[in-house]
């Protein structure tokens, strides 16, 4: 088990390294390079850039220096927001994005999980039909109403027509400002989690070992406890992907609701061709997703004894 964890951590580190290298050399492939901007650079920034990127050195040494500054947690100056370093921007933006993401993930897991569990029960009763219908409806909405359609609609309804929630802005994370962004972020994930939970719980309930429990007359409460433990595994392994999806969604949500998070800086940076900022974002985001996947991986092995052993035996 510890061996497996160690191997996983090393693999994650290797993955992060590849991502950093990929983004670094991709930037260098850009026609004209990132630094022959049409606009003249501020001498101070130009100086900083040279310090970080060592443009006079051969490419591989530039990369080593870039790694070194990354290791020291230095992403360099922003090319777009002239007065800030990328670090300063992140220090402000990262907590906001992570808070949004964590809240949306919790909502998705709670609502989606509950919905899926209710929708999994098969039978002819009204309750079962309603449950299955709710999951179908959620899945359909999740597919046909992407975040960038839902968000303006909610702004229109709650912000402009009924005037019960602010249309946008962050205001240091006031709860009223968080409701619409979190709902927008969570909605597609609710659909996916509900569907996953429904199918896996249905599959598990149809498995022979559940039939064994029934054959021994064990109470439904006990049977569901067994089934849920197994049914949660596919949702757990989806979490890694969910984290990536939430980060993608945060790009849209932060843009639409005007929230100063990572996603918005990323888009603004991409439009303003702010290479340092975009590269920094890619590295940070990849690190987040990789770390999250690692946690999920370890949790999975902890929940499913078969996994832990198949690797170490």
């Amino acid at each position: 088990m510890p061996q497996r964890a160690l191997a996983r951590i090393l693999a994650a580190a290797a993955t992060l390294f590849v991502v950093i290298a990929l983004s670094f050399f991709l930037m260098r492939l850009a026609p004209g390079g990132p630094f022959d901007s049409e606009r003249p650079l501020d001498p101070k920034i130009a100086e900083n850039l040279r310090r970080i990127y060592r443009l006079d050195l051969p490419l591989w040494r530039q990369f080593l220096f870039y790694l070194q500054s990354l290791a020291q947690g230095d992403f360099g100056p922003s090319l777009h927001w002239r007065d800030f370093s990328v670090n300063e921007l992140f220090a402000h933006a990262l907590p906001i994005s992570m808070r949004l993401g964590a809240e949306a993930l919790s909502v998705a897991l709670l609502v989606g999980g509950a919905l899926g569990a209710i929708g999994a029960s098969t039978g002819a009763g009204l309750r079962q039909k309603l449950g299955a219908f709710a999951v179908d409806a959620a899945a359909l909405i999740g597919v046909i109403l992407p975040a960038f359609v839902i968000a303006p609609l909610m702004q229109l309804l709650f912000g402009l027509t009924w005037r019960i929630l602010p249309v946008g802005g962050w205001e240091d994370g006031a709860w009223r400002n968080q409701i619409l962004p979190v709902a927008t972020l969570a909605l597609p994930q609710i659909a996916i989690v509900a569907r996953l939970m429904q199918t896996s719980l249905r599959d598990v309930l149809a498995e022979p070992h559940i039939r064994t429990l029934r054959a021994f007359g064990l109470p439904p409460r006990h049977i569901y406890a067994h089934a849920l433990r197994a049914a949660i595994l596919p949702t757990l392994s989806y979490l890694g992907l969910a984290a990536a999806n939430l980060l993608t969604g945060s790009v849209i949500v932060e843009t639409i609701f005007g929230i100063p998070g990572m996603g918005r800086y990323f888009v603004d940076g991409a439009i303003g061709r702010d290479y340092t900022l975009v590269m920094g974002t890619v590295v940070v985001v990849a690190a987040l997703v990789i770390a999250f996947n690692l946690l999920v991986d370890l949790a999975y092995a902890w929940l499913d004894p078969r996994i832990a052993e198949s690797a170490s035996r």
């Binding site: 022979p208 054959a215 067994h226 433990r229 197994a230 499913d304 004894p305």
Partner: peptide, 18 residues
């Protein structure tokens, strides 16, 4: 289970793997 018990063909899948 108390009065009438049952055993199944495939002992791997009849037991909960977790």
């Amino acid at each position: 289970g108390r009065r009438v018990a049952m055993i199944f063909q495939e002992p791997m899948s009849a037991l909960d793997p977790l």
